[in-house]
Design a protein around this nucleic acid. Structure first.
Length: 220
DNA sequence: ACCCAGGGTCATA
DNA sequence: TATGACCATGGG
């Protein structure tokens, strides 16, 4: 694993120049970000949007109201996001935990490690979901690792791809320095890249990173 | 018809 | 620690 700041920044700058600032997370407020983070697990965001719209329409996009929603009804609302039975439970686990801590605003002054570990203690909230929440809902400098990040950085030859999640995260954080705005925008850019190019295009001629990627012809 | 998506848990070895 | 099964909808 060889992660250098200059190389990481060069990729970031080129992505930013191509896509423009993305202003993530797509969603409104801390609570909705958390809900979205759970719903988007292994799921296309377009599907999550339908679920979020239905939660809003039912007027339950709020901690107390969603917690008061019957399990079957909640599952039905989030159905388009897939895994709806599993996610209904995971969502409820998170809501119950938040309630037990005094609500999501009570977490605002928690130190980052406590916040992260607390979220990870919730069944159904894994490393990526926790880090989505920590970074995008609580503005803490953790770098979110997802499948796209591994694919991209592997392609550049910076990592093997099968590194332990936290080993990889800490390596990137050490290289970049703890910068919330940078981490926020970088992860967003990576997801955009992965979504539009890395998988759907077998050859990378039109890739925004053309000219920078050492292996542009590997394909998806 | 097939592949995959902004993962995570659980059982098993 | 490390695999594999499982969860499920919607778009390409």
């Amino acid at each position: 694993m060889r992660l250098e700041r200059d190389a990481l920044i060069a990729v970031f700058e080129q992505l930013l120049a191509h896509f423009g600032p993305l202003h993530w997370w797509p969603g409104d407020g801390r609570f909705e970000i958390m809900v979205g983070a759970v719903l988007t697990q292994n799921t296309a965001w377009t599907n999550v949007e339908k679920a979020i719209a239905s939660l809003r329409a039912a007027d339950v996009m709020e901690l107390a109201a969603m917690r008061a929603t019957a399990p079957d009804a909640l599952a039905e609302m989030i159905r388009p996001a897939g895994y709806f039975n599993v996610k209904q439970r995971r969502l409820r686990n998170l809501l119950d935990w938040l309630h037990a801590q005094g609500g999501h605003d009570a977490l605002l002054d928690w130190p980052t490690p406590r916040l992260r570990d607390g979220l990870l203690s919730v069944n159904g909230v894994g490393r990526e979901t926790a880090d989505d929440i920590v970074l995008y809902a609580y503005d803490r400098p953790v770098f979110v690792i997802d499948a796209y990040t591994r694919r991209l950085f592997s392609r550049f030859g910076w990592i093997g791809g099968d590194e332990d999640y936290d080993q990889l995260r800490l390596g990137i954080e050490a290289a970049l320095g703890h910068d919330v705005a940078l981490f926020n925008e970088y992860h967003a850019q990576i997801v955009y890249l992965g979504k539009d190019y890395c998988r759907t295009r077998p050859r990378c001629g039109a890739c925004p990173l053309a000219g920078l990627c050492p292996f542009p012809d590997i394909g998806g």
